[in-house]
Design a protein around this nucleic acid. Structure first.
Lengths: 356, 356
DNA sequence: TTGAAAGCGTTACCAG
DNA sequence: CTGGTAACGCTTTCAA
């Protein structure tokens, strides 16, 4: 009756020559119990006699048995996997986030699937589809955009387990964890103000994307509060890359009365800006103070060591994954949000305004 | 006869109120064909009438059907996933590697699972187990160690689809892709020699791990070829971290006759070394030349811009994943190996020996 | 070209 | 506490 399965294990075949992977049926036979009992004994969950438990575990060890996760996943209707979707895999800022997420996921028995959108809306949708396909049980989204009408977001199905991190998505009803970008930016600018600077420029991230906008808002707010007006030529919009940092910096410093300090929306652009300033013959921090945002692993060793705003990346990763596990476990739950603290890290790239 | 499945879809229930995910059975019913035909039509593979194909696709669209990958994976005995295992997720060097691997994997329909060993042998074994469990169909290993007697490596089972990248593992019979670390190191040192330096120090990676050893060998070889002896106090062993770069640098420069140039086994340690030199009042490159290895994204913007050896990371990732796909597709195949080219990138951290 | 049905290897229900 | 057995949702063989 066996049809279409040429490599089927023969019942009468001696165990020693079996080449296929053993399954619970094999164990059941060897241990002299049913497959149901094997399953119960192996998962330690069910109520099983210590004697049979031992028998089964013995047989399993003897056959070098390993659970087939594919079968298990189908049966329990889970993948024990989460999708971690970012805009750009090569962004160094994600390093510690990855680490935090992976650590918690691992501990909870989940594997992490890499997702990379490259800011392509279609690819983003693909990841939502993957979630629906059962590739993963939940998703961490570090991209700013959402497909408007995707089914996993449809209320009829109960919104899927998704946690948005870092990128605030307004009123999407999804759980999210981030930092207070506006307040942190304000703190950064205040640091410069406290040092006596009044002409302060800003290299922003992409606007009107939320993140870039919030940091820009924080910058403007702090300047307004201090009673300083900012000429538009002191603001430039970059894309978080080192190169764009250079470009924006040059543009700003080509203005009539260039600023004496710069608040840059991320460390990478700050690196570029500092490089450009050096090329223009300006010293940091003697001539120009520069403060960044993120505190990359290398910012501390940069020359000069970069003053910046630190985000607790590992903790953000951990918290995000923890929330997702919570969400996946308890089914639907009122959307949570969590704001992680940031910290001003003063190093060598900022200094009091030189008395000219 | 339906037992134990309370939420089972009722046959007579109107379609509109069905809350569960539709499956091919639902489509079959709606399209008036068998599930076999649905499967064939949807996978476009089988020979199916254009008419039925359309019917089926229509029904699928109407029901908003999506294939259940868990069921498919079980049936076809594949996971369409690969495991990417590194020593440390937070190592910036992996960024472009990840990107390269992910790009090729994606294009071939594979998902990438993150693996992180933190240099823990037990965790490493767990990933081998995961491979056996069917979590993934293949594995990319960027860790130096192998569990000696693991079953997936056992000849009786035919070695599993595994590609070792970057970390050369000797005579393990596994496919691997890397660069010629010894030759590249020799090139780096020759660059310093060409600039007139004769007292050259080296900050090595962990020894006797293969990678650190090879770069150290290249250093010594080049020095020997040039007829220069290296006092042991001009060699120090770090762990690739910025901090260890600082530490090793200090130790080397505390010697009686410190070197005038430094070949550092990776860029991160070079950053640390440069920072330390600065703290000691030494200028780079005027007083000391420094050359690194890797060409991190930030090396170009460092101050001074770092002279280094570039590894083609994206290409390494791509090549590795391509080899793995090949391996997974064609079953066992003679182990392949591939050596990618490196490139000396001369920037501002190296200069001719100053005439004292 | 299509349909019926046999699995893929588990888990979990029900009955004993 | 244990065994029989029905799913989980799909692919694929064999027969028509």
């Amino acid at each position: 009756m066996e049809v279409g399965h040429p490599a089927k294990k023969g019942e009468g075949r001696p165990v020693a020559t079996m080449v296929a992977r053993p399954n619970i049926k094999d164990i059941a036979r060897l241990a002299g119990v049913s497959t149901a009992t094997v399953s119960r004994a192996l998962s330690d969950s069910g109520v099983v006699t210590e004697a049979t438990r031992a028998k089964v575990h013995d047989a399993a060890r003897k056959l070098n048995y390993r659970l087939n996760v594919r079968a298990r996943n189908l049966r329990i209707q889970k993948s024990m996997a989460v999708l971690l979707v970012v805009r750009n895999m090569a962004n160094p800022f994600y390093l510690d986030i990855f680490k935090g997420v992976e650590g918690i996921a691992r501990a909870a028995g989940y594997v992490v699937l890499m997702g990379n959108t490259e800011d392509d809306a279609n690819r983003e949708i693909e990841y939502f589809d993957m979630l629906r396909d059962g590739h993963a049980d939940g998703m961490i989204l570090m991209t700013g955009n959402l497909p408007q009408e995707h089914q996993v977001l449809d209320d009829r199905f109960g919104s899927a387990p998704i946690v948005v991190a870092l990128e605030a998505i307004e009123n999407c009803g999804l759980a999210h964890v981030d930092v207070d970008n506006r307040a942190a930016s304000r703190t950064a600018v205040r640091h410069l103000l406290d040092l006596g600077h009044t002409r302060i420029g800003h290299i922003a991230g992409p606007v009107p994307e939320v993140l870039g906008q919030l940091r820009l808002d924080g910058f403007r707010m702090a300047m307004a509060e201090a009673g300083h007006s900012v000429p538009s030529c002191h603001e430039a919009v970059g894309d978080y890359s080192i190169q764009s940092g250079r470009r924006c910096c040059r543009r700003i410093f080509e203005s009539e009365t260039p600023p004496t300090a710069l608040f840059v929306a991320n460390d990478e652009m700050a690196f570029g800006a500092i490089g450009e300033l050096r090329d223009m013959g300006l010293r940091v921090p003697q001539d120009v103070s520069v403060i960044g945002f993120d505190d990359l692993f290398v910012s501390d060793s940069f020359s000069p060591p970069l003053t910046t705003i630190r985000q607790p990346c590992i903790e953000i990763g951990r918290k995000t994954m923890t929330m997702l596990i919570d969400l996946m476990g308890s089914g639907r739950r009122s959307p949570q949000m969590c704001q992680m603290p940031t910290e001003l890290v003063v190093r060598g790239s900022t200094a009091p305004l030189a008395q000219a």
